[in-house]
Structure formats: structure tokens, C-alpha cells
């Protein structure tokens, strides 16, 4: 089939960027969306033009690297599918497709469809973990977790950190991303210990990074390739309310800082 593409081209963060038109000919329905772009790029390269830059790695829908907004929907029309797993049989001959980068203040564009999502990493770094050291932990089976809780934690933990939720949210909020992490760890006894600290530091990090807030539009869930549930946002809010009055302290045990040498 033949398609008309309007693709966002932007040299770097300073450039203003614009949509450019490309024709994609001879596209087969068995191709993935990214393979379709590969075909377009190959032609561009051979014509001496710069190919469209886009992020991708596993092409299996698990690494969360791929990120594009297709006809206004992050990851495209199929639902519960990453762009790399989206196949061209979802489109028809003659379609016009708009391809844009994820848009959010917290995700500056690096080049074309590639954006900088390190803000999500910084939210995790702010406290999205259990502060356990390597070694010295008890036998795994001494920590019992009800099957239901373990399964729910797993459902939350499926988040691939692609940032589609942020790009879909009219407020550019990362609530679903936080919700997934906070709920995953809060469901487990190991994670309860520092639940308050975690939610507080992650929420402040989210604001600091320039993400918006949740107005419960639920666009995030609609585009989430892993279908992370909205109830986790409620859980995040619950955890946040529980943490009222908690005074954050720094994790001084993370590294043996300057050990004073006793003489």
C-alpha cells in the first residue's frame, strides 16, 4: 500500500521544528510501523537526505524505548500496543499519517521524534526503590506475600517507562508512571517499610521536573501499552494521603560516606 506521512522534523532542542511530507510506497501489511519507517529512511539515505531519527531498541514492546505519537495518539491506534509492535495491517492504502514526538515540557526534543525522557529516571532516583543493600538479606521464602498482592504488584510493575502516559495527558502529568511504581512497591511487605518516604519524594520530584498534575482525564490509561490500571492512581493518592505529616529524611546509608578513621 501507499501512504502519505507528515513527520515532525527537528534538528535539535533549539530548532523550532516542522511537519514534513513524505510518501511511503510499497508498504506491506506484515510490516511493523517501525519497519515502514525503515523503508522510508532507506530511501532518504540513498537520496542523500537525513533519515528520520526515532528511538527504538527491542522492537518487542518491552524496553519502552520506542515513542511516537501517531495521528495524535501515543503508540498509535491499536491500544495496548507499542509503536514497535504496531503493524501496518492497522492502516489502509492511501491513509495519511501524522507522526510526532511525545510532547511535554519535561521531555525536551533531542532530534526529530527523539525526546529526552531522563526526567522519568530522576523520579525513580528520587526514591522509587526499596533501600536494600546487596547481600545480607533473608531467605526469599521468609517474606510471604499473598498471591493476590503479588499479582497486583506485578500488574503495576509491568510499566515499561515509555512516557506515553505523559504525552497523552492534557496536563503532561506522570501520575500513571508514578502510580505504577508506588503501587508495585507498596503492595509488598518489603516495600511498605519506606512507603511514605517513597511517595513523598517521588511526588516532589515529579513537580520539580515540570510535569503537570492529574485531573483524572484518564487519557494515560487509554494509551498505555501495558494497560496500567487507573486504580493504581487512586492507590498512589491513598499512599500520598497516608504520608501526610511525614518529614522526609535523606538516605544516608546509601553509601558508606566518609568513614572516620579511628586511631
Amino acid at each position: 500500500m501507499n501512504l502519505t506521512l507528515f513527520v515532525w522534523r527537528q534538528k535539535g532542542p533549539e530548532d523550532t521544528g516542522r511537519l514534513e511530507r513524505y510518501e511511503a510506497g510499497d508498504i506491506s501489511t506484515g510490516m511493523s510501523f517501525l519497519e515502514m519507517l525503515d523503508v522510508v529512511n532507506d530511501k532518504l539515505i540513498k537520496n542523500g537526505e537525513e533519515p528520520i531519527a526515532f528511538d527504538h531498541d527491542c522492537r518487542e514492546g518491552i524496553c519502552g524505548t520506542c515513542s511516537q505519537v501517531i495521528n495524535g495518539v501515543p503508540h498509535g491506534p491499536e491500544g495496548k500496543t507499542t509503536v514497535c509492535q504496531l503493524h501496518m495491517r492497522n492502516f489502509s492504502d492511501g491513509d495519511t499519517i501524522y507522526i510526532e514526538p511525545l510532547k511535554s515540557k519535561a521531555f525536551p526534543v533531542i532530534s526529530d521524534l527523539i525526546v529526552d525522557r531522563s526526567a522519568l529516571d530522576r523520579i525513580i532516583q528520587a526514591g522509587g526503590y526499596i533501600s536494600v543493600h546487596t547481600g545480607g538479606v533473608p531467605d526469599a521464602n521468609t517474606i510471604l506475600v499473598a498471591k493476590h498482592d503479588a499479582d497486583t504488584a506485578m500488574d503495576a510493575a509491568e510499566c515499561i517507562g515509555c512516557g506515553a502516559c505523559v504525552a497523552a495527558c492534557p496536563n503532561g502529568s506522570a501520575m500513571l508512571f508514578l502510580a505504577a511504581r508506588v503501587s508495585h512497591l507498596a503492595m509488598l511487605p518489603q516495600g511498605r517499610v519506606e512507603a511514605k518516604r517513597r511517595v513523598r519524594s517521588m511526588i516532589s520530584a515529579m513537580s520539580k521536573e515540570g510535569f503537570g498534575n492529574c485531573s483524572n482525564h484518564y487519557e494515560c490509561h487509554a494509551v498505555c501499552p501495558k494497560g496500567i490500571k487507573l486504580s493504581f492512581i487512586a492507590k498512589l493518592n491513598r499512599e500520598f494521603i497516608k504520608a501526610f505529616g511525614y518529614v522526609a529524611e535523606k538516605d544516608s546509608a546509601a553509601r558508606p560516606a566518609d568513614v572516620s578513621i579511628a586511631d
Binding site: 526503590y129 536494600v132 538479606v137 533473608p138 526469599a140 517474606i143 499473598a146 498471591k147 499479582d151 506485578m154
Partner: peptide, 14 residues
């Protein structure tokens, strides 16, 4: 396995 469970890896359970 002990380490991963302590980190919160949600392994399948019975």
C-alpha cells in the same frame, strides 16, 4: 533470588 525478593521483584507466588 533472596536479593531480588528483598528488592521487591514480584515473582509469581502460590
Amino acid at each position: 533470588i533472596d536479593q531480588c525478593v528483598a528488592q521487591g521483584v514480584p515473582f509469581a507466588r502460590d
